[in-house]
């Protein structure tokens, strides 16, 4: 009888392992996020000082560090900029700008030159200009102005995104995350708002300040 019980559990284990082989591709395709959203929308922009990092991976995957303006939660619209490493860009580190609004989501616009340097920090801005125009830029590196419809910020985000948990994100560091309430200065994100985006497992977040985080895990 003991052997029969043992055989039964062996069979169950085989079934589970075999099933996982088929189901795992479904899990792999989901994107993973970790970082902050602000829970507040000063009208004129968001910026962050972000470390560029380089992790080698294979396959049709990407990772991205970016800031974004949320335009609508009900339609899922936003405007973002940051750096990425993407199989579609031959695994080269690139700056990018991307928008999703009433006209659609054409996908990321990659900046061919210059390119971000691993280990270097850059300050990224998404700033409201006149009318419906928003400008995404790093001073001295690139600048792209897009007309957004709708043109009002509903919230802001500062995020790390990957397409597979096999990408290790330990180099991620966002600091001096700021928003621009008026026409003048930028202000660090304040403590009184609810800011943490719960990290998607297996990733984690270290949060020294409301305006700073380190993301880690994966690989």
């Amino acid at each position: 009888m003991d052997n029969n019980v043992r055989n039964f559990w062996k069979a169950v284990t085989k079934i589970i392992l075999l099933s996982m082989t088929f189901i795992s591709p479904v899990i792999v395709f989901a994107n993973y996020h970790t970082g902050y959203y602000y829970g507040h929308a000063p009208p004129n922009g968001v910026s962050a000082y972000i470390r560029t990092w380089n992790y080698n991976f294979a396959g049709q995957h990407f990772y991205v560090n970016y800031i974004c303006v949320y335009l609508s939660a009900g339609f899922n619209w936003w405007f973002s900029t940051g750096f990425c490493k993407d199989y579609r860009q031959n695994y080269q580190l690139k700056y990018f700008v991307e928008k999703s609004d009433r006209n659609g989501a054409p996908g990321p616009e990659w900046i061919s030159s210059p390119t971000p340097v691993s280990g270097t920090y850059y300050t990224y801005f998404v700033e409201k200009m006149s009318g419906s125009n928003w400008k995404a830029y790093v001073i001295g590196k690139y600048s792209k102005t897009k007309s957004l419809n709708p043109y009002a910020a509903a919230d802001y985000g500062a995020l790390v995104e990957t397409t597979t948990s096999s990408i290790r994100i330990d180099g991620s560091h966002f600091n001096y995350i700021s928003a621009k309430p008026g026409t003048g200065d930028w202000y660090l994100w304040e403590d009184k708002y609810n800011v943490i985006t719960p990290p998607d497992s297996p990733y984690g977040l270290t949060t020294p300040h409301t305006y700073e985080f380190y993301a880690y895990g994966g690989g």
Partner: peptide, 10 residues
Amino acid sequence: GYTPPSLMDL
């Protein structure tokens, strides 16, 4: 695209 998490997911 690079898609931030939907706000109301949070």
